[in-house]
Design a protein around this nucleic acid. Structure first.
Length: 586
DNA sequence: GCCGTTTTCGGCCCGACTGTTTTCAGTCG
């Protein structure tokens, strides 16, 4: 084996192959096939090497005989002939042009073949010199749009995907502004935002109104809008000052259901749903369900009606990723997804004893006010100096304060004494066993050395998981969205060990983390793991972040039973006490 | 290139907007 590829790298290779085939004018369906395979490999909850060794590559949707052979070749030899050939035929600098709005494969091919342009710089030069307009289909207006697009890319005014937590306040600002427009009947943010994907490519808004023009006018003149990309009577697009693109569609209220369904996506889900509709004799668009034979339109005012008419159970937005949800809805085996009110407590909470901003009392009152029955206090252990980690002596002092707060808050709510304990570089823990044994629940996490090699990182996690007094592994991959990749580790082995030992894996709800990622969380559930959803709150306001974590769990198809902090306190503590015995068996 | 309660071959979701065009191609989602 030449080297080890990540799923992301392999997905990128197939994405590049799709781009290059497209520039060569290959048939769109073949290009689409490579894109679909790339997308599914990127979203896979499993290491592609494991599937390869099991001979199970074909279980990835969109991977058939030909693409399986190519993955095999790449993993076996470290090279892919098709990829090497395409790279020798097509200048790689052409692929960078895809970032420029309005520059698709046909236009890239045209400037390359007819003008010999291979780089963005040459394209800019030609546009300035007015040479592009000589090409068929190009004109002066397009030329200046391309120039503006190059400028925007250069000044990094075009954002890539942004974390959900960054998109959140922007979306709500726009929703509030549109809500004020007279005549607006219904209003929603759709797209990947509504599906609560961890990162958002653009914002999609849908409005039902009788006066589209007034809505469009308001949308395109919002103060946070930088450029109006297009403006029509039913559809407008703008680029926000942050670089994020936002689209708005206006429709009549009677068609709200089909429209909201369509604009929520995902594209894969929509394609599959439309194929399913055709099998049942309907053509589905954002405007209506149309009976193919009679061409009779059936308007759906709600999404529920769309799914019902197609013989399906209602599919919640978080599941609409084209990953088996339509079959499950057809067979009536969609999970009863966890909801925020199922939760009985928060299992990672900090106070001023370490790096939190509020006292134990303030945090506990806020947790109780939310309707929780318990809260696990998890200040940092001693070695995490930057976070004022506690020595065992300080930990025992802290216990007295916890007891006082518990006495004060009375029955029906309990602060549990825990800690967020460092998993050190050698896999050992930052408190001796007798300290850990005296805590109600122990949360363990890695904050340093995430870049260690795969074997060492994996061994650290396995050591913590097999420790008799570790109950929860916090923010397992350590990723920070848009800033830092998660640790490279053998997740399949880690998830299996967690399942065997009953060690709970955290979904950290902080929108900068969302860790476990949804793909890994879903795999964890398939392997029989139990999870928890925690905010990692450092102030009372941060308890509100819990809904982001619930969304990740829903995207992982989690039911309340799968999430240990929906359980009554007695059951949770009993589960933890069982661990040494489970280790004996494992 | 993928895929199968009409198929192992012949299909493959559906539409808006713009610019360059006199009916449509390209891009985007």
């Amino acid at each position: 084996m030449e080297r080890r590829w990540t799923n992301q790298e392999i997905a990128q290779i197939f994405e590049n192959i799709a781009d290059m085939l497209e520039i060569q004018g290959e048939i769109p369906y073949k290009v689409m096939a490579y894109r679909r395979a790339a997308e599914n490999i990127a979203a896979l909850g499993r290491d592609i090497y494991d599937l390869w060794q099991e001979g199970a590559l074909r279980t990835i949707p969109g991977v058939g005989e030909a693409i399986e052979e190519k993955i095999d070749q790449l993993l076996r030899t470290g090279r892919l002939e098709l990829y090497e050939r395409l790279k020798s035929e097509i200048p790689q600098s052409l692929l960078e042009m895809r970032q420029i709005p309005d520059m698709g494969p046909k236009r890239i091919k045209a400037v390359w073949e007819k003008l010999g342009i291979t780089t963005v710089e040459e394209l800019e030069e030609a546009a300035r010199a007015g040479k592009l307009r000589s090409l068929p289909g190009f004109g002066a207006k397009l030329e200046s749009k391309i120039l503006a697009g190059i400028e925007a890319v250069k000044r990094r005014k075009i954002a890539g995907r942004v974390p959900l937590g960054v998109a959140w306040p922007l979306a709500h600002e726009i929703l509030s502004a549109l809500r004020e427009v007279p005549g607006v009947q219904q209003l929603a943010a759709a797209g990947s935002f509504r599906r609560m994907k961890d990162t958002i490519g653009d914002l999609d808004f849908l409005v039902a109104a009788d006066n589209p023009d007034a809505v469009m006018e308001r949308f395109t003149t919002l103060p946070i809008v930088e450029t109006v990309l297009l403006k029509g009577s039913t559809k407008s697009s703008v680029r926000l000052r942050t670089g994020l693109q936002a689209d708005l569609r206006v429709i009549e209220a009677a068609r709200w259901g089909t429209a909201l369904q369509y604009f929520t996506g995902s594209q894969q889900h929509n394609i599959q749903l439309r194929e399913h509709a055709l099998k049942r004799g309907y053509s589905l668009s954002e405007y209506a369900l149309t009976q193919v034979e009679t061409e009779k339109e059936i308007l759906c005012a709600t999404e529920e009606e769309v799914y019902t008419r197609l013989g399906l159970a209602y599919i919640p937005p978080e599941l609409r990723e084209g990953r088996g949800e339509i079959e499950a809805a057809l067979e009536g085996r969609l999970p009863r997804l966890i909801e925020i009110h199922d939760l009985q407590g928060d299992l990672q909470v900090h106070s001023t004893w370490s790096d939190g901003q509020a006292s134990i009392r303030e945090m506990a009152r806020a947790a109780k006010a939310r309707g929780y029955r318990y809260m696990l206090l998890t200040d940092h252990s001693q070695s995490l100096g930057v976070a004022k980690g506690l020595t065992p002596e300080r930990l025992w002092e802290q216990r007295r304060e916890i007891e006082a707060v518990n006495a004060e808050l009375g029955d029906g709510f309990r602060v549990l004494h825990g800690a967020e304990v460092e998993i050190r570089a050698d896999g050992s823990l930052d408190y001796p066993d007798e300290v850990l044994a005296a805590l109600d629940l122990v949360v363990a996490s890695v904050h340093t050395g995430l870049r260690q090699d795969r074997e060492r990182v994996t061994a650290r996690f396995l050591a913590a998981i097999r420790h008799p007094y570790v109950h929860i592994i916090a923010h397992p991959t350590g990723r920070l969205l848009g800033e830092r990749e998660g640790a490279d580790a053998d997740w399949e082995a880690i998830l299996r060990a967690a399942a065997e030992t009953g060690t709970l894996l955290e979904i950290n709800a902080n929108p900068a983390r969302l860790d476990l990622p949804d793909g890994l969380a879903r795999r964890a559930l398939e392997l029989g793991c139990k999870l928890v959803i925690s905010t990692d709150a450092h102030s009372p306001g941060e308890f509100d972040l819990i809904h982001f974590g619930v969304a990740v769990a829903r995207r992982a198809w989690a039911t309340p039973e799968d999430i240990a902090n929906t359980w009554p306190l007695e059951r949770l503590l009993a589960w933890a006490k069982e661990k040494p015995r489970r280790l004996g068996r494992a």
